[in-house]
Design a protein around this nucleic acid. Sequence first.
DNA 1: GAGAAATTGTGAAATATTGCACATAGGTAC
DNA 2: GTACCTATGTGCAATATTTCACAATTTCTC
Lengths: 217, 217
Amino acid sequence: MGNETKIPAPTIERLAQYSRPLESLLESGTTVISSEKLARLCGVNPAQVRKDLAYFGEFGVRGVGYDVADLLAAIKKILGSDQEWALCIVGMGNLGRALVENENFKKRGYRFVAAFDSDSRRVGTRLPCGLTIQPISRLKEEVESLMVDIGVISCIPPEAQRAADLLMDAGVKAILNFSPAQVRTPECCVVQNVDFSVKLENLVYHLQKIEETGRPG
Amino acid sequence: MGNETKIPAPTIERLAQYSRPLESLLESGTTVISSEKLARLCGVNPAQVRKDLAYFGEFGVRGVGYDVADLLAAIKKILGSDQEWALCIVGMGNLGRALVENENFKKRGYRFVAAFDSDSRRVGTRLPCGLTIQPISRLKEEVESLMVDIGVISCIPPEAQRAADLLMDAGVKAILNFSPAQVRTPECCVVQNVDFSVKLENLVYHLQKIEETGRPG
DNA sequence: GAGAAATTGTGAAATATTGCACATAGGTAC
DNA sequence: GTACCTATGTGCAATATTTCACAATTTCTC
């Protein structure tokens, strides 16, 4: 395949998941992997792996498998994670401060270039990563001059929509939202929500089912 | 409906999402809401809302809508988030420390009752929430005596599987995994993954598409 | 170099999920 | 108590996603 078919959203999600074990395999010196083994490492069906990749081209060798380094590079290219991206963050509570220092982000070329908070008591604080927390009033100017690609929202829920609006007004086209509030955006801006408490409630549903029936629901 | 049909996983995920705006509506004094308005608040289709709820019973009044307080209570009961649940956490880096203090967890009745780390330099630290970081060697005994329901993994990827194994050995049946490593568990243990970097790479894919075509992929 | 073994890429079937469209029923006005 | 308005609950069609199953291709063995 490899032409411009509409790619299913779950496929994109899984491509990123495939890259995690590939990174480990590359480090550990494994050069080739089959769809079956990669699938097992990711907890999915082998045909799924092959079909997901087939949307973008032919990356494997029949009878052999996939070259680990090549496949990882191909997936990164597809996703766009072979480039460096500039992030800013709004809301510097416990979570915000943890995210700014997060190793997983750094390792993959995501760089935080600005941090904002609406609380004047936090403004001016120098963070371990070298950034200084700035007031929301400086957001537009900073985001524009630093050419921020992605905005991270880690503020309290009532402020989330305002943060999103400010980011979009400053030209940001992608938002990673850690607040449990839904943010509304026009079609031109992509949002991904990371809501822990939704995941927790999911777990709790299954736990309850286990207690009732002895099996997950 | 209301009988024991197999409930789709996306339905469970959305139920938790519905409860977020319902909490706000309840606080703001709104007593009744239609599936259409709730759907708009959550960014889904109104029929979806009705169908999701219909799996569990009839909660609305035709011609009127849903009573906000009743619906929220019903959803919490369905999910099991009307109960208190005991959590422990493994891995007390920046993220772990932020999660333990997180307001969204506390507010919804999720209580952290123990915190562990494999790094002896962190062990013994007293956290703002009152817990003291304990060595991994104490995990089994503590988790059993405190009757922990859910284990949260926020350690570095290479240690994630070991953390999961220890938690399961101590009888934990549900794991919330923040590490980008896949953890393997037997069927009796439920895992939910919260992988920020996967979400980020998703965003980046769409950003790249916007740059190429002017529209999200 | 022919046959066996392995593993990809993919059309087609199976399954799952979503959304439409409308019958059904509660509430309100007169 | 009848007519009308509104919004739920749901059968069914449409769409999306996953999985199967196998032909195609490469490597290995003798």
